[in-house]
């Protein structure tokens, strides 16, 4: 009965939403409000104003930078949430943990991973640094680093990866996305503009394109590093989930 009611409710809601969707402006029409109001400026002037050849990056980091500051805070918040529920290892204790998988990985896998991981990390750096001019950016690059650490941990175990990325490093870098963003924002104020202004009014006109570009890259790097560390920390917390500070049996 309960199920039926919920099903009916959801069905009705779905129908209603479908009806609303049918009333929405048709997809992709150039006359849509979405196409005619703010978007043209982004498309036409992004390169000149935000000095980002990748318009998406320009919008994310520059025009709507505060939203992105919020988003990186969401990611950081997610990490804190995981740590609040699962707890973090005490300092130094992680060395006592046994390997993640009881079965030692085969030589082939270990060798392959050992060979591939540096390249993955290198690739992620490209993704981060190229965010300004091509698809990619801090979020994606950070995710790639995180993925490389997941592979590394599954194959070599928590012990080794926690030696590679010790608690000290993670604790310092987890918040780097938020910190970089905040500092860039403050720099905007000090540079004579508003919070998160990239083109500082106090800097001469000719230097501004370079300044904006480099600040954009800086923010991307911060996001990338922070994102990567957040992934790693979440991974570590989840792997040692059983029994807060006890080594895995």
């Amino acid at each position: 009965m309960k199920r039926l009611v919920s099903l009916l409710f959801i069905g009705a809601l779905a129908l209603l939403l479908l009806y609303v969707v049918s009333k929405m402006p048709p997809m992709g029409e150039p006359t849509n409000p979405t196409m005619t109001h703010v978007v043209p400026r982004y498309l036409e002037k992004s390169e000149g104003e935000a000095h980002a050849r990748n318009v998406v990056t320009g919008v994310i980091i520059n025009y709507r930078g505060f939203d992105t500051l919020g988003e990186v805070t969401v990611i950081y918040c997610a990490l804190a949430a995981v740590l609040a529920v699962l707890g973090r290892e005490k300092r130094g204790r992680i060395r006592d943990y046994v390997e993640l998988s009881g079965i030692p990985s085969s030589v082939i896998v270990r060798t392959m991973v050992a060979l591939v991981v540096p390249f993955i990390v290198l690739f992620s750096l490209y993704v981060i640094l190229h965010g300004e001019m091509s698809p990619g950016g801090g979020f994606q690059g950070g995710a790639v680093i995180g993925a490389s650490m997941i592979i590394f941990t599954t194959v070599f175990g928590l012990h080794l990866s926690s030696v590679k990325v010790p608690l000290k490093v993670r604790a310092a870098l987890e918040g780097s996305a938020v910190i970089t963003f905040f500092l860039v924002g403050i720099a905007g104020i000090l540079g004579g503009g508003n919070f998160l202004a990239y083109a500082w009014p106090r800097v001469s006109q000719s230097l501004q394109p370079a300044l904006v570009t480099w600040l954009t890259v800086l923010v991307e790097v911060g996001i990338g590093l922070g994102g990567a560390m957040v992934f790693v920390s979440i991974l570590f917390a989840m792997v040692r989930e059983e029994g807060a500070d006890e080594p895995l049996a």
Partner: peptide
């Protein structure tokens, strides 16, 4: 500023 503070806390805790 509290966002920034929150980002600094893990290292401070360390």
């Amino acid at each position: 500023i509290p966002f920034f503070g929150a980002a600094l806390l893990p290292f401070l805790a360390y």
